[in-house]
Simulated assay, not measured.
Amino acid sequence: MRILIALFIVSFSWVGSAQNSQQPTTTTYFFIRHAEKDLSNPKDHNPKLTEAGKIRSKNWAKILEDTPIDYVYTTDYIRTKKTAAPIAKSKGLEMKIYNPKKLNDIDFQQNTIGKTTVVVGHSNTTPTFVNKIIGKNKYNSIDETIYGKLFIVKITGEVITDTVLIIN
Rank of each mutant, 00 (worst) to 15 (best):
I106Y: 06
L150G: 05
D105G: 05
H45I: 08
T25D: 09
G114D: 12
G157N: 09
S11G: 15
K82S: 11
A52R: 14
E158V: 09
K81D: 05
T145C: 03
V15T: 05
Y139E: 00
Y77K: 10
D66S: 12
I152E: 06
D162G: 09
G92C: 05
K102S: 06
D107Q: 08
T126S: 04
V119M: 05
G157H: 08
N99Q: 10
N41M: 08
N104R: 13
E158L: 10
T27G: 06
K149V: 03
N104A: 11
F8D: 06
R56E: 02
V119T: 07
K54H: 11
S90A: 13
Y29M: 00
H122T: 05
T50N: 00
K154I: 04
I155A: 02
P24F: 03
F129Q: 01
S57I: 10
I87N: 03
N137I: 05
Y147A: 00
N59Q: 14
Y147R: 11
D162R: 15
T25Y: 08
G157W: 11
K37G: 03
I97C: 08
Y139M: 01
D44F: 07
E158H: 07
T125K: 07
N131A: 03
R2F: 13
I5A: 12
R79N: 01
F129N: 03
N20A: 13
N131H: 08
E144H: 12
V130R: 11
S17Q: 15
I133G: 01
I55G: 11
P47T: 00
K115S: 02
Y71G: 04
L64R: 00
T156H: 10
V72Y: 02
G53I: 06
P127K: 05
L64H: 02
Y98I: 09
K154L: 02
T74F: 12
W14L: 07
H45F: 11
M1H: 06
I3S: 02
T145K: 13
T156G: 06
A85K: 15
T117V: 05
G92A: 07
